[in-house]
Design a protein around this nucleic acid. Structure first.
Length: 487
DNA sequence: CGGTTTTGACCAGCGC
DNA sequence: GCGCTGGTCAAAACCG
């Protein structure tokens, strides 16, 4: 009881800090908006300034929050005025924050779209066979943490639409292999799985287990789990298919990551005409894309072509986070933080097999939690430092929007002042890094190809949705968790 | 009792 | 055609 009370106090203080930070950000945003509006109204100097503005906008990544994802992907002509949208975002975010423990009508109704307004490279048709993506999540981290993964939340209409458009539902055949250090027999990706088979695969003494998603009876998603023969501490989970049902919040984080990887693969093989290998280092998320006959040459120390359990002969994209690098931290932190173990579904159900530690040994969690037992670490850590020295990704996202015209996520033209009071101290946040200049190793061409692909956008939207959704729900979940703890 | 896991059998694809 | 391998099926066992 004492511990619970103490933790409750801690969480309350964290909550108040978050609110405080949010207020500050909102204030800054309003100031910026005022500054932004003034010259616009005053100067009616004609087209060329407007033109500049338009072209500038086209260079920007527009991050939109809303409930209708589809609308966010509409052509820019039908889009709301950007400032208006910013306002909407802030208002909605504010509402969400203020709800604080209030269950919203639709738990996953919050959606985010990441729109990169460069339509010069329309999505090309996909014409590949079954493909495998390998997402390697290594960890030099040392503390257990619980992470959750999934594929798609119910708002991901865009991806669903795309699936319908794709010949032979190729997206469903896409595989995402996740490598992680995990002591437990299986990882918790937030989904519910039923084992339907087990095989001893050639060349690996460890049996491979086959799972089906049981959240929905008709869900086509399958998963293979196998230990790496070379390093038994590495668990290789290979996902295939796309969930056709709402996912628990805890499942959306991995869903986003893997979807992004899948989108990366698809966009890379379909739209990059110049090179058969697309590789990028999204500050910890390392993708390598390779075809059957491709010998991928990594230009990143983290880039690897992994041979996932069943990927032989298939094009493979590797998202390599196994290398020891601080740049991995953003992604791991992101997952750790927002894959809430207290998610409604994953916590309330009785599927222990779905509980996995994505990064078993995570130093970052120690920082977050400030110590404590393993269990309390697991449940406390993700929320621990959100309001301390580090800013939450949510705030980062808002801030990214706040600084609006000043940043160029893809290292192209950053037109105006890029300084922001709080921008300097959250490099650790993956999303943030994606949207700043800090990805020098990523060829602009590749990024362009990736980011203009609707699949990627969709996946990113899902990712952000899950992140923000998880963030916004944290308060509630924490409270609920506390409530559960107390008799 | 309902859902999950186990495990041997079966099937399909691929290479020789 | 044959054998190998990966993947799936389904009945029995197990579990809460």
């Amino acid at each position: 009881m004492e511990e619970a009370k103490e933790e409750n106090r801690r969480l309350k203080s964290s909550l108040s800090k978050i609110k405080k930070d949010f207020d500050i950000l909102q204030t800054q945003y309003n100031q910026l908006m005022v500054q932004h509006e003034e010259p616009k109204h005053i100067s009616s100097k004609g087209h060329h300034q407007d033109k500049d503005k338009v072209s500038e906008r086209e260079e920007l990544v527009s991050l939109s929050l809303g409930r209708g994802l589809k609308s966010l992907f509409q052509p820019s002509g039908s889009m709301k005025n950007k400032e208006e949208k910013n306002k909407d975002i802030m208002e909605e975010a504010g509402d969400d924050k203020k709800i604080d423990g209030h269950e919203k009508g639709s738990e996953q109704g919050l959606s985010v779209a990441f729109e990169y307004k460069d339509l010069s490279n329309p999505n090309e048709k996909f014409d590949h066979k079954k493909e495998t993506i390998s997402l390697e999540i290594g960890s030099n981290n040392k503390t257990p943490s619980e992470n959750s993964f999934g594929f798609k939340n119910d708002e991901d209409d865009h991806q669903e639409d795309q699936e319908e458009l794709l010949p032979q539902n190729l997206v469903k055949k896409t595989r995402v292999s996740v490598r992680s250090r995990c002591e437990t027999p299986t990882m918790n990706d937030g989904c519910q799985w039923r084992k339907y088979g087990q095989k001893i695969a050639k060349g690996n003494p460890c049996p491979r287990a086959y799972y089906r998603c049981t959240i929905a009876a008709s869900c086509p998603v399958r998963k293979q789990v196998q230990r790496c023969s070379e390093d038994m501490s590495i668990l290789i989970s290979t996902y295939e298919g796309t969930h056709n049902h709402p996912l628990p919040m805890s499942a959306t984080a991995m869903a986003s990551a893997t979807s992004a990887a899948a989108s990366m693969l698809l966009s890379g093989t379909s739209s990059s005409s110049s090179s058969s290998v697309a590789a990028s280092d999204l500050h910890g998320l390392n993708f390598s894309l390779s075809g059957n006959n491709i010998n991928p040459k990594s230009n990143s120390p983290f880039l690897q072509t992994s041979s996932s359990p069943s990927s032989s002969g298939h094009p493979t994209i590797t998202l390599d986070l196994t290398a020891s690098s601080s740049s991995q931290q953003p992604f791991l932190s992101m997952l750790n933080r927002f894959s809430s173990p207290t998610s409604n579904v994953s916590r309330s159900n009785s599927y222990p097999s779905t509980n996995l530690n994505f990064s078993n040994n995570t130093n970052t969690l120690q920082n977050w939690s400030g110590g404590g037992g393993i269990l309390s670490n697991q449940y406390r850590a993700p929320y621990g430092n959100i309001s301390t020295h580090q800013q939450s990704p949510y705030q980062s996202i808002i801030q990214t929007r706040t600084v609006g015209s000043s940043f160029d996520p893809f290292g192209r033209s950053a037109s105006s002042s890029s300084s922001h009071p709080t921008q300097s101290n959250h490099d650790h946040i993956g999303i943030k890094n994606i949207t700043t200049h800090q990805v020098p190793s990523l060829p602009a061409e590749t990024i362009k190809a990736i980011t203009t692909d609707p699949n990627f956008q969709s996946a990113l939207a899902t990712a952000l949705s899950s992140i923000i959704g998880g963030d916004l729900k944290i308060d509630h979940k924490v409270n609920r968790s506390d409530a559960e703890k107390s008799p």
